[in-house]
């Protein structure tokens, strides 16, 4: 024990003789300030890169989307919808309410399903030939183009080819999985 005490005293005295108190403090301070500037372990760096890639995947819409309530504007398939949800009007995401007809034409966009993070093509198909439903009006714009690119514009009444141009509501029909 005595020997350990003597050794400890020797080391401390040698350090005290060589280093000023200010020097020790400044080195400790520099260490504290500089440490965060250096990435730590490679594992941590890999995980950070992974989560950055994960965060870039998808859109603002898809990161806040849900997959259980198709009467809410943030249902995942509605990422580019503009209009009244047929799901709130007596129809569904893929069927028209009674008394209205599905349009044979639509515009096709894609939405990311938050459950599997994969992109699915969605046909935004309007139901036509009945008074406007006026329930659950949504406006989402993923992959929608301005009106001068009408092929992918969601503001147009997509009733081309039906008997009536009277807009009722909009569906979001699942076309398939984009591989």
């Amino acid at each position: 024990m005595n020997r350990l005490d003597n050794w400890g005293e020797r080391v401390t005295r040698r350090l005290a003789g060589r280093l000023s108190r200010r020097s020790a403090l400044s080195r400790l301070g520099a260490l504290l300030v500089a440490a965060p500037a250096f990435p730590l372990l490679p594992v941590q760096r890999a995980r950070a890169a992974d989560s950055a890639a994960h965060a870039q995947k998808g859109t603002d819409f898809s990161r806040a989307a849900q997959t259980h309530d198709d009467t809410a504007c943030n249902y995942w398939r509605y990422c580019g919808i503009d209009g009244n949800l047929c799901s709130c009007c007596g129809g569904s995401t893929h069927s028209c309410p009674p008394g209205s007809q599905p349009s044979p034409t639509s515009w096709i966009g894609s939405c990311i399903n938050p459950d599997d993070q994969r992109a699915y093509l969605i046909a935004y198909r309007d139901c036509c030939g009945a008074n406007e439903c006026n329930q659950c009006s949504c406006l989402n714009t993923d992959h929608a183009m301005p009106i001068y690119r009408p092929q992918a514009n969601n503001h147009i009444i997509w009733c081309f080819g039906t008997q009536s141009f009277e807009y009722h509501c909009s569906m979001a029909v699942l076309v398939g999985l984009a591989e």
Binding site: S92, H94, P102, F160, G161, S164, L177, A178
Partner: peptide, 29 residues
């Protein structure tokens, strides 16, 4: 592209319900 006429043969329109099945088709590029 958007040429359309009210009253075009609606009978020939594939019903949208045709794509509502549980089986999701996989689409190539």
């Amino acid at each position: 592209l958007m040429a359309a006429v009210a009253g075009a043969a609606v009978a020939a329109v594939p019903p949208a319900q045709a794509y509502s099945g549980r089986r999701v088709s996989r689409l190539s590029a």
